[in-house]
Amino acid sequence: TIPSPNFLHQLLEGEQDEGQLRTKVLTSLQKEQANRGKHDCLNTFSIMCKMADQTLFGLVEWARNSNLFKELKVDDQMVLLQSCWSELLVLDHLCRQVTYGKEGCIYLVTGQQIEVSTIISQAGMTLSSLVTRTQDLVSKLKALQFDRQEFVCLKYLVLFNPDVKSVQNRRQVEQTQERVNRALMEHTQQSHPGHSDKFGQLLLRLPEVRSISLQVEDYLYQRHLLGDLPCNSLLAEMLHGKHS
């Protein structure tokens, strides 16, 4: 089917509101801190995990509210999300950096900006490499003038992945992926006619997103083994799902 002009518009309508997400994350962190004694502060890594956890809740809610996703049974929804949750987190982070991030800074979901140099000076080797790789990808996306329509298409392409094992309704997933792929191609051709291969350049970023997401999962899993990862969280459950 040829995507209708408002197909992309419908996808955009399902996007979370950044301000609402920011409020939700800040409220959750304040509640967490209020439950602790004044001198028992959350360490930086735990705060980052809480932010990621709340963002992940938001992404699951986003997927769940999508009409395309609703067409799948819950078992298929679970398998797809279990497979791509960390890619969705990375894409969400990348889009936030392209939209709001200042040069040399990382823009957090709480609205705060942290100098990349500050993180690098305190982080270990793995996290430093992750930050550097991600910032490089942000630069590439900025150079490509990555916009919100393209971002939402990439999220759907990552979510509706027919290659995920044990997907029952593979054909449905394939059809949605093809439809979104076509919408992305037409959008890049219409909105950036001068950039002949923007569509191809955007798709080339997906393996990089996948690679970074796998490194993020390994990093989080290592920290989990050290007992650093807050338990009873969606983040921990999704991590276990993949490593069990």
Binding site: V60, V74, Q82, E237, M238, G241, S244
Partner: peptide, 18 residues
Amino acid sequence: KKKDNALLRYLLDKDDTV
């Protein structure tokens, strides 16, 4: 595995009308 994904299943399966 199913037990591992209890929270995800709950989030996807919960009834909004409640």
